[in-house]
Simulated scan of single mutants.
Amino acid sequence: MNERKAVFPANRHALYEQHEYSAAIQSGDLLFVSGQVGSREDGTAEPDFAEQVRRAFTNLSATLESAGCTFDDIVDVTTFHTDPQNQFDVLMPIKQEFFAKRPYPNWTAVGVTWLAGFDFEIKVIARIPQVV
């Protein structure tokens, strides 16, 4: 059985300590990343939606990097949206900056009514590249 190992980015934001969770858990060659939001370093939400989405992806990138992964290693994505119908026009161009080439990971988008003061959250599963 593989042990789980907590993974945190170098400049982790305050939410991890405030809510007592890990940025990601490594189990074998899989990385299970907790939902990443567009938070500032103090844990508060970025008020501009486009910037909040960009920060969520940037926070995700930092967590992936801390485990030796990139966006190319992601196999599964789940996003949560407080107003999907009105947010997708802003989200899609930002998403394309980070997922620029095929094959794209599978993706599930879920509309929700509450994200603790945020409007967008992204969680992923990635395969950690083998070191040779």
Rank of each mutant, 00 (worst) to 15 (best):
109 A>L: 11
83 D>V: 04
107 W>L: 15
104 Y>L: 15
66 S>C: 06
131 V>L: 15
59 N>F: 01
12 R>Y: 07
87 Q>N: 12
121 E>I: 09
131 V>C: 11
102 R>V: 07
94 I>F: 11
100 A>D: 14
131 V>F: 13
115 L>F: 06
126 A>H: 08
109 A>C: 09
130 Q>R: 15
95 K>M: 13
117 G>D: 06
84 P>Q: 10
55 R>G: 00
132 V>Y: 13
51 E>S: 11
75 V>T: 15
1 M>T: 08
108 T>E: 13
37 V>K: 02
47 P>L: 08
117 G>F: 10
87 Q>H: 13
2 N>A: 10
116 A>N: 14
6 A>F: 09
91 L>P: 00
18 Q>T: 14
110 V>L: 14
17 E>S: 13
33 V>I: 09
81 H>A: 02
66 S>N: 05
17 E>L: 10
126 A>N: 08
56 A>N: 01
35 G>T: 11
103 P>Q: 10
50 A>G: 13
105 P>Q: 11
24 A>T: 01
3 E>L: 08
64 L>P: 02
39 S>T: 06
126 A>C: 10
83 D>E: 13
67 A>D: 03
89 D>H: 02
44 T>Q: 15
86 N>Q: 13
53 V>D: 00
7 V>Y: 01
39 S>E: 11
91 L>S: 01
77 V>E: 03
63 T>R: 01
33 V>A: 00
93 P>D: 10
3 E>I: 06
129 P>E: 08
132 V>K: 14
61 S>M: 07
50 A>V: 04
25 I>F: 10
75 V>D: 05
72 D>C: 05
97 E>L: 09
116 A>M: 14
126 A>V: 02
85 Q>Y: 09
3 E>N: 09
113 T>E: 12
117 G>C: 08
24 A>D: 04
88 F>P: 02
113 T>C: 04
33 V>G: 00
52 Q>P: 03
5 K>N: 08
98 F>A: 03
60 L>A: 04
19 H>W: 14
29 D>P: 03
91 L>N: 01
65 E>P: 00
100 A>G: 07
60 L>K: 06
61 S>F: 03
62 A>T: 04
45 A>R: 10
57 F>E: 01
131 V>R: 14
83 D>G: 07
131 V>Q: 15
111 G>I: 04
47 P>N: 09
64 L>S: 04
11 N>G: 12
8 F>R: 03
22 S>I: 03
59 N>I: 05
109 A>E: 10
42 D>N: 15
34 S>L: 06
49 F>N: 07
95 K>F: 15
16 Y>P: 02
94 I>A: 05
25 I>R: 05
81 H>Q: 06
74 I>R: 05
56 A>R: 00
43 G>D: 04
131 V>W: 08
39 S>A: 14
53 V>N: 01
104 Y>C: 06
86 N>V: 02
110 V>M: 12
2 N>V: 06
74 I>D: 02
131 V>D: 12
65 E>G: 02
34 S>A: 15
118 F>D: 00
84 P>H: 08
88 F>I: 14
21 Y>P: 10
98 F>C: 07
115 L>C: 06
131 V>G: 07
115 L>M: 07
68 G>T: 09
35 G>Y: 02
32 F>V: 07
112 V>E: 05
111 G>D: 12
41 E>Y: 07
108 T>K: 14
17 E>Y: 03
23 A>M: 08
4 R>M: 10
5 K>S: 07
51 E>G: 03
